[in-house]
Amino acid sequence: MAIRINGAEIAVPDDARVSLLGLLREQLHLTGTKVGCNQGACGACTVLIDGERVLSCLTLAVQADERSVTTIEGLSGAGSHKLQDAFIEHDGLQCGYCTPGQICAADAMLREIAAGVPSYITADLAAPARLTREEVRERMSGNLCRCGAHNGIVDAILQVAAERTA
């Protein structure tokens, strides 16, 4: 029984109530993953499981058994992640508390768009989705920001997306 977290094998906690978020923050001191509600309503706790964005507050740690979890610390990895640089450049943060969740979500979102996955606002569901400012806003709507860094966040994501397709 183990969860792969940022490449390391971590034992599943004994107490089944422990959320993935709790495991990360309290037991592993990976406090880059934030907690804004514990209700599935803010996105601050977003991490990647097998590359897909999920909420670690509503994921019990045991559910992640045998799966691979990447947190903001893992995204930073060797060097700085392009999104992280772009967030700084475009001032896509103020207090910085929603930021790791926004970055993890954005990382997965860009892959979703690249795979052509549609969103609620995609006009033609049958065709591959295209990346527009409005698409990014809809797809990032699961990540709340109370400081109001929305414009900078979207700018940062669009810049990284543009660099990738360039």
């Binding site: 599935g40 509503l58 549609p118 609620y120 569901l125 797809r139």
Partner: peptide, 23 residues
């Protein structure tokens, strides 16, 4: 789903957030 049942794809995409829909 997208081609045969667009209302279903759209309904699901209208719900919650991308993270929650992944879970």
């Amino acid at each position: 789903v997208r081609s045969q049942y667009p209302m279903l794809a759209r309904a699901i995409l209208a719900g919650a957030s991308a993270q929650i829909r992944n879970m």
